[in-house]
Design a binder for these strands. Structure first.
Lengths: 183, 183
DNA sequence: CATTTTGTTCAAAAAAACTTGAACAATTTC
DNA sequence: GAAATTGTTCAAGTTTTTTTGAACAAAATG
């Protein structure tokens, strides 16, 4: 039953524990998640996986971070969606195990894809809506002012659209430190 | 007393009103503020000023947006701090009046200066702390793993530091649409 | 096919973020 | 210098977001 029975020590619990430096790393990612508008628990989960070499299963994550099933499940799903973690094949185990993606380029791409791109799309719709509402404007003056504002917003939109590809490129450059760098 | 008395109509209230298209613009900025991790009211205030040609005072902003004194005061301070709005000299009026900064480069610079730069600085401190804690690590294995993680984080930090100047440059390019483009 | 294991969902609880407004400070006016 | 004007602060109230955990679904086990 218990993996420790083979040690002859019969330790009752604590398969594993979070080291001090790991706690600091987890806290770093907790804060980072917050800054990016993501729940703290997502940061904690990513941080834990980032620290570990071996893939972890959901229940191990729950135990180590002391978070609920719901948080763990939702966090893992969102992080997977962002491409920040990936499930690994675990031989002879029904549970799914996860590892952290450590290539910055991949992380940035995933984040931009999930967060920035949708905003740019919504922006186009917003600009159309404003254009439409402009027809109802009371005075000639308000109408021309609205047109000028619409032009400014369109310009901003265009510039942001041009910026994103550059960000993806620049972060991609010299992505050393990751073992194989496939892709 | 009332500016409308000269019209001969004696309108009792409503010095001014928000047009439909302005409401849409304000809502756009409300959502944008949210995405950038700023309070909605900051977005509303900026959005309103963005729409208007003439500078607005705090009480006018409160009336038009139906927000409290506290929100208005704090919002104006934060936006000024970000460089997103500026006070203008108002002849013969004790109130401060504000106009929106519409040069994207300025807005991006202010945002990065206030939000990104501090994070990068905190990052340096964080890395040092991790380095320190690493000395307490239990096993040789954990220590070497910690070192590897520290290197990865240092690399990310370096890359983000390199990215920011580029963002500032790229957004600055071809900042047409703003009248004079001084600076 | 009943049972166990693994993971999801979602309503309710808890925590965090934002807003409000009354009290206060600073300045100007008369 | 009393009163009015303008703006700030912050404790308390409100709203929003996040977390929890019990109920549920799906799949494997025996």
């Amino acid at each position: 039953m218990n993996a420790f029975s083979v040690t002859g020590k019969e330790l009752p619990e604590k398969v594993d524990v979070i080291e001090e430096w790991e706690g600091a790393v987890i806290d770093l990612f907790l804060n980072a998640a917050n800054s990016f508008g993501l729940p703290k628990s997502y940061g904690q989960i990513y941080g834990l996986l980032f620290c570990r070499d071996e893939p972890l299963a959901m229940d191990e994550i729950m135990d180590l971070l002391q978070i609920s099933k719901g948080s763990a499940s939702q966090g893992l799903r969102a992080l997977r969606q962002l491409g920040a973690i990936s499930p690994t094949y675990a031989p002879g185990d029904r549970k799914e195990h996860f590892v952290a993606e450590i290539r910055l380029r991949k992380l940035v791409n995933g984040f931009l894809r999930e967060q920035a791109d949708p905003h740019l799309d919504k922006g186009v719709a917003r600009l159309k809506q404003i254009e439409e509402l402009l027809k109802n404007s009371k005075s000639r003056d308000s109408h021309s002012r609205g047109l000028r504002r619409h032009e400014i917003l369109s310009g901003w939109h265009r510039q942001m659209s041009r910026l994103l590809p550059w960000v993806k490129m620049i972060v991609g450059k010299s992505d050393r430190l990751s073992p194989k760098n496939k892709d």
